[in-house]
Design a protein around this nucleic acid. Structure first.
Length: 435
RNA sequence: GCGAUCGUAGCUCAGUUGGUUAGAGCGCCGGUUUGUGGUACCGGAGGUCGUGGGUUCGAGACCCAUCGAUCGCCCCA
């Protein structure tokens, strides 16, 4: 019998990587509460049009990366390739307007049919934070400060920089786009093949190109700053001064653009050079046009998403807190039952205990050592009623074993009478079952 | 979707210009020794060499295809 393989681009996460993954999510949950973003849960799939209408038909994500399929009723559905569109849909269909401005956060799996690479998967996971219904630049600032604090609390802020740009309002962006098309069309033949393609579909993307043939022209390409309306300028100014006031360092990146159609005004990425080609760790921006494209009223909104796998890779080894405090080692068959009883008494009392199911006392002891469990409860028994327990500390450097020892004694004393220890073995505890 | 590198035990790898029963370390299982201990020693299990074809007297090594991983492009978080 052959074993089916996992699907390409999916991952089974275990061990240190799983710990790092959980650490990222837990840190996000903590910081998000601090900033009072409300937790939401979203479906993993939506009607295909939710994404095609909002993200843009011509974008790569929609045109070649979506997992779309017909359900048994003949409806076209799509596994979510991102959070924002679904959240905008939920905002409309659930009447969340009544809570505007609404600050929400979520996390979970997303799906994109891409060539897998390190830090890029077909099922990947993101953190997501959005503010819907707030036209003020302060909303952009709050979101960015949240992102900044998250990275700091994860301990990875040092290698990561905030690249910031504005795309202007709809009119600014369109004027700039046309100017870019004019500019690049004049030199079309000298651009890379990719960029010649991009010229029609998404000319802003040419600015991002890594191809030296393109870079030669990018330097002198029209700048967004020349097309910004006064309002758009003021808006961006308010965002940057807000960041300065909050003590968030940023770098202006005039050629930073976003691939999805719905972005306006603020656009940003937190990037690192420590992940090779997948350098963007968190990205987002303002998407004032999105809710409208789903048939809703004009609704200003900002948001970002961050790749959990990429953050977890930067975090590296997470110091796993020592939650197993004591290992029980029974000696002999009679002690086995007593150990089991003590084991569950301790766990119910909140003491992290471990009991290996099999092996000789020596074997179980070796296991405890290897698992780095700092304390050992040596369970002996001379008959069914009287037990001799001996607490040993494996780690001699342990500064204060007494509090734990006291917690253990307190828990046991509810079920056993603890008699005076034998002076020969001062660390032993003698137990007699309470009637 | 394009280009490149790689795929041998649970893990990390070795395997010489193609040549007998494919190896090591760690891990795992069992045992001996050790009674404040992460020791030492002995033994054991575990591999259709990613998969499928081909070349050859003979393939883990060479060729083709396929699947997967990695790196870059593209895209994006």
């Amino acid at each position: 019998m052959s074993t089916p393989q996992a699907i390409r681009g999916t991952q089974d996460i275990f061990g240190a990587e799983a710990e790092a993954f959980a650490h990222v999510v837990e840190t996000f949950e903590r910081v998000r509460k601090l900033y009072r973003f409300r937790r939401i849960e979203m479906p993993v799939f939506e009607k295909t049009e939710v994404f095609s209408r909002s993200i843009g038909e011509t974008t790569d994500v929609v045109s070649k990366e979506m997992y779309s399929f017909e359900d048994r009723g003949g409806e076209s559905l799509t596994l979510r390739p991102e959070f924002t569109a679904g959240i905008a849909r939920a905002y409309l269909t659930n009447g969340w307007q009544q809570h505007a401005p609404l600050k929400v956060a979520t996390h979970g799996p997303l799906f994109r049919y891409e060539r897998p690479q390190k830090g890029r998967y077909r099922q990947f996971h993101q953190l997501d934070a959005e503010i819907i219904g707030a036209p003020e630049p302060q909303a952009d600032v709050e979101l960015l400060v949240l992102a900044d604090q998250l990275l700091k609390e994860l301990g990875i802020a040092d290698g990561v920089t905030l690249m910031l740009n504005t795309l202007g309002d709809g009119a600014s962006r369109e004027a700039w786009r046309l100017a870019l098309i004019d500019y690049f069309r004049a030199v079309q033949g000298q651009l890379s093949e990719d960029s010649q393609e991009r010229l029609e579909r998404n000319p802003l993307r040419i600015l991002d190109s890594k191809d030296p043939r393109d870079k030669a022209f990018v330097a002198d390409a029209p700048k967004i700053d020349d097309f910004l309306s006064g309002e758009a300028q003021d808006f961006f100014g308010a965002v940057t001064s807000g960041l300065d006031a909050a003590g968030v360092t940023w770098t202006r990146a005039p050629s930073l653009v976003r691939g999805l159609d719905y972005y306006r005004h603020t656009a940003f990425e937190f990037v690192t050079d420590r992940l090779g080609a997948q350098g963007t760790v968190l990205g987002g921006g303002r998407y004032d046009g999105l809710v409208e494209s789903l048939g809703g009223p004009p609704t200003p909104a900002v948001g970002w998403a961050a790749g959990i796998e990429r953050l977890a890779m930067l975090v590296g080894e997470v110091p796993t807190q020592q939650d197993v405090e004591i290992a029980l080692v029974p000696r002999g068959d009679l002690a086995e039952a007593l150990a089991l009883e003590v084991f569950y008494i301790l766990r119910r009392a909140g003491v992290g205990a471990e009991l290996a199911y099999r092996g000789s006392p020596k074997n179980r002891f070796e296991k405890a050592k290897k698992a780095m469990i700092p304390r050992l409860l040596d369970v002996g028994s001379s008959d069914g009623e009287i037990g001799v327990l001996l607490i040993r500390d494996i780690n001699v450097a342990e500064t204060s074993p007494e509090p734990v020892r006291k917690r253990i004694k307190d828990a046991l004393s509810q079920h056993f009478v603890i008699t005076d220890p034998n002076p020969e073995f001062p660390r032993s505890i003698h137990l007699v079952r309470r009637k």
